[in-house]
Every structure is written in C-alpha cells, then in structure tokens.
C-alpha cells in the first residue's frame, strides 16, 4: 500500500534528491548505508543515532524517507507519530507494496524498514530500499565474519592454556599435548575447543 494523498510528485520537485533520514543506533552500519546512498547520488542523508529526542529531530528535519533498523525499539514510537497526522507536517506511512511481498520479505530479513511521505512514487523508493537491504546484508556478513574471527581467537587461547595444563600435569611436550587433545576430540566426536575447555574446567575443580 502506498499512501496516496493530495501532494503530487511535481509539488515536491521531481529532480531534487529526496531527504533521507537513517535511524540506526549502530554508527558503523549507518556509515556504510550513508556512504552507499551518497555513492548512488542521494545527497541529502542524515543519520540519527540518538533515540532520546528522535521524534523532535524527525519533525525538525522533515524528511521524505525514513530508514530504520528493525532491532530499534523506537520503531513503535515512529508508527504512532505517523498515525497522529498532526505530529508531522506531511503524512508519512510505512513503505508497503502489496503487490511485491518478496521485497518486503527481503527488507525484513535484512532487518530494515522504510517509511515515506505521502505522494512519493514507488519507482523512486524501490532503488533506495534495495540499496538499504543490500547494505544491511553486507554489514551483517561483516559482523558474522568478525564474530567468527573473535570466536576462533578465543578458542585458540583456550587450547593454548589447556595444552599448558596437560604439559604440566602429564609431563608432555607441547606437540604431545596437542595430539592427545586432538585424538580425544576425534574419538568423542567433539570439537578440540570443547575438549580444551573441559580440561580447563576440570583443572579448576581439582585445584
């Protein structure tokens, strides 16, 4: 559903770049998105990362499009703001194209949602939303990689400490300690990190 009202596309100026507000508490993700929008030629982009005075700032900025991350608890407040037409100068509604549920699904999957002013044409919104979805997905991928790397580093530390315990208690060399953990992991069908953690837990208990 697109909000169709009195304001026409012409009245807003077809040539001018729509004013886009990004509501996101993650500064990194907002920067990635802002950069993408600017590269695509959207010059008027403002990021709001502080939720305290969110509604007042949106009112003052008077944007054409609001992009918000779905993990943001302020989303319900935004919906209310748009329900109460007096709260904003121009009626705003969530961007929902009933004929294109796939793109709605893609945006919710990516964790982003868009609200638009009355009268803005679907053809103008779609590329912006698509860009937001791809940037949000790119950010999520980076985040996953970072988490995996952090996890791998943590696991490495645990394995090193467990090796130390085995070397001390059983008088093994570093190589032997590692081989012992690896063969135990294979026999018990567990990860070597889990075996290392069990060794550390046990050595704590037996102290």
């Amino acid at each position: 559903m697109l909000w169709i009202g009195s304001r026409t596309e012409q009245a807003m100026g077809v040539e001018s770049s729509p004013k886009i507000v990004i509501v996101d508490e993650s500064p990194v993700r907002a920067a990635i998105l802002e950069e993408g929008l600017r590269e695509a030629g959207y010059t008027e982009v403002v990021h709001i990362g502080e939720m305290q005075s969110l509604l007042a700032r949106i009112y003052a900025l008077d944007p054409d499009i609001i992009v918000i991350d779905l993990e943001n608890p302020s989303r319900d407040s935004l919906e209310q703001m748009f329900q109460v037409s007096r709260a904003v100068r121009r009626p705003i509604a969530m961007f929902v194209d009933q004929s294109d549920t796939a793109s709605i699904q893609a945006s919710v999957d990516a964790g982003v949602s868009a609200y638009i002013v009355d009268g803005l044409k679907k053809e103008r919104i779609k590329p912006i939303l698509d860009l937001c979805v791809s940037r949000f997905n790119a950010f999520a991928k980076l985040q996953n990689e970072l988490d995996r790397t952090k996890h791998a580093l943590e696991e490495r530390k645990v394995i090193d400490r467990a090796k130390g315990v085995l070397m001390k208690v059983k008088g093994l060399t570093e190589e032997e300690a590692y081989v012992l953990m690896r063969s135990t992991a294979m026999r018990e069908k567990k990860k070597i990190g889990e075996i290392a953690q069990s060794i550390l837990t046990a050595s704590e208990l037996l102290k």
Binding site: L70, N72, P73, R75
Partner: peptide, 9 residues
C-alpha cells in the same frame, strides 16, 4: 523489540 516487528514478521 517492537509490536511493529511482531506484526510484520
């Protein structure tokens, strides 16, 4: 975190 999310999902 929001009713909007519950509704949309």
């Amino acid at each position: 975190v929001s009713w909007s999310n519950v509704r949309d999902k």
